[in-house]
Nucleic acid binder design. Structure first.
Lengths: 200, 200
DNA sequence: CTCCTAATTGAATGCAAATTAGACTACTCC
DNA sequence: GGAGTAGTCTAATTTGCATTCAATTAGGAG
């Protein structure tokens, strides 16, 4: 009869995870103290160990979840497009989705992009493995775009792709909702990328 | 008679600084141990304190020097251009210079871009102040480009500028000399940015 | 009411890394 | 060759966390 358990009473585990994502995305890996995380999650540091093996394990899980957020959101948006949509149009949609999930939707996503490069080796490889799927999605968009002729053929796709993703991933470092509506930023990014990538 | 002093015998201070830049640019702020720096500089950790007040002070100086590297290099290259050069052409030259100093010329430069967002508040503001001059340089290029008509006028300059700088600053995260010549990367970046920014 | 377990805690513990203290070396100048 | 000094070292000391321990609490089941 008894309803499952664990999360029956409270969602402490989720709160801790979310708190970790928040601290990581704001302060970065170096400055992320277990105490800060615990405080935001409204409990003490030792309680974290009831749910996670170690600080590292907690961070690792934040990264995995963040990676999922990004991939799932972008995938979902792309899947909703009509079949006839050109590669270039799809890329623009992906740009929109990527920026939104990163800047608006999820601390987890921000935590990943801002910290991936600074993590201890073990976690780093985990993240790298997870993100390779995501890169595959983008790669596919570019290739299809070149095939259907919407994307210029005189440019190295891998470099162009990484430069674009870099532009998006850097946004958390400077963009602020207070100063500029996200829709404006997205519009600029799309316009710019479209012109840069379109076949002449 | 006696020649100055200090650096007369050896350049330990410079070695330490350079070592710090190397470690910071590779491992990131979180994983940068004084011991590692000392080892690369070929001395023990306490010797560092003969030249720097603290680990923080050392890191701060690396950041300042890195910032100088970038600004000076880009400025120098821009200053060498003919007077008639259009804004868009200048931007492309700046793109070249920025990527080169970041990826090829200086660990200090890489250290700054890879760590600026993760530093303790005090250092962060120092870096922010120093880099505002650099941003001013870029801003000027964009404005001039719009004035001389080489840069499109239907786009928000600040956003476009930051997206481009983001694309460049992200390069250290993925680019590797072993896989791709830097000239190729620069060529792609320039082509892409030129099309994205050119007036139609 | 009493027992049981999940969840949480305050108070140790442990440890890795920064920092300090004091001695040692080697060079310079007289 | 002695005195001073710059530079470096080894051996403490200190500190800031992560982590462990041994309770303690709160809720549900009988």
């Amino acid at each position: 009869m008894t309803v499952p358990t664990k999360t029956r009473i409270k969602g402490s585990r989720d709160r801790i995870l979310a708190a970790a994502a928040a601290v990581l995305s704001e302060k970065g890996y170096a400055a992320t103290r277990l105490t800060d995380i615990a405080e935001i999650a409204e409990l003490r540091a030792p309680a974290v160990y009831y749910y996670f093996d170690s600080r590292e394990a907690l961070v690792a899980e934040v990264m995995v979840v963040g990676q999922q957020w990004v991939r799932r959101h972008v995938t979902a948006v792309l899947d909703a497009l009509e079949d006839g949509t050109t590669g270039l149009d799809r890329i623009c949609v992906a740009v929109d989705a990527h920026l939104r999930v990163e800047l608006e939707l999820s601390d987890f996503a921000t935590a990943v992009t801002r910290n991936a490069g600074q993590l201890p080796p073990d976690i780093r490889t985990t993240v790298a493995r997870a993100s390779s799927e995501y890169h595959a999605i983008w790669r596919k968009l570019f290739v299809e775009g070149q095939i259907d002729g919407s994307v210029r053929s005189d440019i190295d796709l891998e470099s162009a792709r990484m430069l674009i993703i870099g532009a998006l991933n850097w946004a958390p470092e400077w963009w602020s909702a207070a100063r500029q509506p996200i829709d404006d930023l997205i519009a600029v990014a799309q316009t710019f990328i479209r012109s840069g990538l379109a076949a002449p």
